[in-house]
């Protein structure tokens, strides 16, 4: 390895954060995928040593600061996504992109489920089916997002 991938990680996370926070018309905001989660998942799979659970936790906390009803909610959910990515990175990495997307869909659904459960426990229930839409759009975008993220840093093998 020549340089650490950290710079690429920080850059892509910042871009994902901007994409998450930039104001959009309301119908577009509903289908907007969780870019930060996708980015964290990608780095957990590709660079489990540099990315990983700590990165996920911090990104989640930043999301909480901007839009969480409860501090720590997204931190837990994104850390869980990163954990699954790190744990299964060797299996996921070798699959073709379309199969990866299925895994991503499962992980994102779990992520939304964790948020939904915590919302319910903490008394901010939001029981509309639309909140599950980003999991689907995120999985659909994965075959586009993953190669883009791959361009930001290429490890010398």
């Amino acid at each position: 390895m020549t340089a650490s991938p950290r710079i690429a990680i920080v850059k892509t996370v910042l871009i994902a954060l901007v994409l998450t926070l930039v104001p959009l018309p309301s119908w577009l905001a509903i289908v907007r995928p969780d870019f930060v989660v996708l980015t964290v998942l990608y780095w957990s799979i590709e660079e489990p040593r540099s990315g990983g659970i700590g990165l996920g936790w911090i990104c989640g906390l930043i999301l909480d600061a901007f839009q969480g009803p409860l501090l720590g909610e997204h931190a837990l959910a994104v850390a869980l996504v990163a954990y699954l990515g790190v744990r299964e990175h060797q299996r996921i990495r070798t699959k073709p992109l379309l199969q990866q997307s299925l895994v991503v869909f499962a992980v994102l659904t779990l992520y939304e489920f964790v948020l939904w459960a915590i919302d319910g426990w903490s008394g901010h229930p939001l029981t509309t089916a639309l909140r599950w839409v980003p999991a689907l759009t995120g999985a659909l975008l994965w075959p586009l997002v993953a190669p883009l993220l791959g361009r930001s840093y290429r490890r010398r093998r």
Binding site: P48, R49, G52, I53, G54, G56, W57, G60, L61, L70, L71, G72, E73, A75, L76, A79, L80, A82, Y83, V86, R87, H89, I118, S122
Partner: peptide, 22 residues
């Protein structure tokens, strides 16, 4: 994988921290 400790252990630590915050 990861730095030093197993990911399961590290995830548990981070999850506890997040729950404490909540």
């Amino acid at each position: 994988h990861g730095r030093g400790s197993a990911p399961g252990f590290r995830f548990t630590l981070y999850a506890l921290a997040a729950i404490a915050l909540m």
